[in-house]
Design a protein around this nucleic acid. Sequence first.
DNA 1: GCATCTATGTGTATAATGCACATATATAGC
DNA 2: GCTATATATGTGCATTATACACATAGATGC
Lengths: 139, 139
Amino acid sequence: MTRDDEERQGKRDESASARDDGPTGMPKNWLTAVLLLQLRELNSYGYDLLEKAAAFGFAALNPGTLYRVLRQMEKEGLVNSGWDTSGQGPARRVYSITEAGEAYLKLWAGSLDQYRRTMDMFFRMYTGRSPDKPKSSDK
Amino acid sequence: MTRDDEERQGKRDESASARDDGPTGMPKNWLTAVLLLQLRELNSYGYDLLEKAAAFGFAALNPGTLYRVLRQMEKEGLVNSGWDTSGQGPARRVYSITEAGEAYLKLWAGSLDQYRRTMDMFFRMYTGRSPDKPKSSDK
DNA sequence: GCATCTATGTGTATAATGCACATATATAGC
DNA sequence: GCTATATATGTGCATTATACACATAGATGC
């Protein structure tokens, strides 16, 4: 197809209606990082992690997605799991972080810094000024 | 499959060798946002944007990916394009941002703030302290 | 003609994620 | 015993974003 062909066709679909909801997504594997962070604090299980993850941008996280990610993480050696049947309800698969998991988390935390710098750059170029700082202990 | 079955199998694959390279990815649609930001400054074309995007985390961006994203953005009405044949080499498809594109960019910039707060939270929980601030014009 | 640089594009695969649905245990009410 | 509900885990299937290899095409120099 030549450019003249395209010029003639002039098909601007417009039906695609842009991205429906704007930027929803956190970085790739963000959920993995968040889960590892939680598990480093305290061993836990899916249903519980579902709530804890909400604070990190997963307010409406689908349970199936969470469970699948946890299993994948285990396959990759980032976490271990075992059943807890001591409770009253259904058994819980309790996860704990491995050394590989801690290493991965460390890697993540490291690149978070680069991440932040890149986004600052974006923000400055967009607004022409520095983005608001978190009002916590400045300096 | 009961939990006892799994307990017996005890298959920790380990072959999956964790995520090969750690966290590489910027947020979803980050490239779109970066391209819109560039196009807001100055109309441009793919081959040129390829270099400009490098500063925003796309150092080794595959050209094919870029061109495809640009076309998709046009389908969605975020940008317009036209051919520039005035130069010497092959024709360039020059893009310009639309109002929808500016609106989308604004939306993005807005949620960038939420992004930053979430990542700060992650960082604090990881390190137990506030992340380093950019040393630019403080307030 | 052939190589090379510029410039744009397609085919195909994979990874991450979302949504709908399925399963299983326990408890409470009828 | 039957049914509904809350807890808890999981699978099937589709979509989206992206990566990688490859294809196309104009212009220039040999």
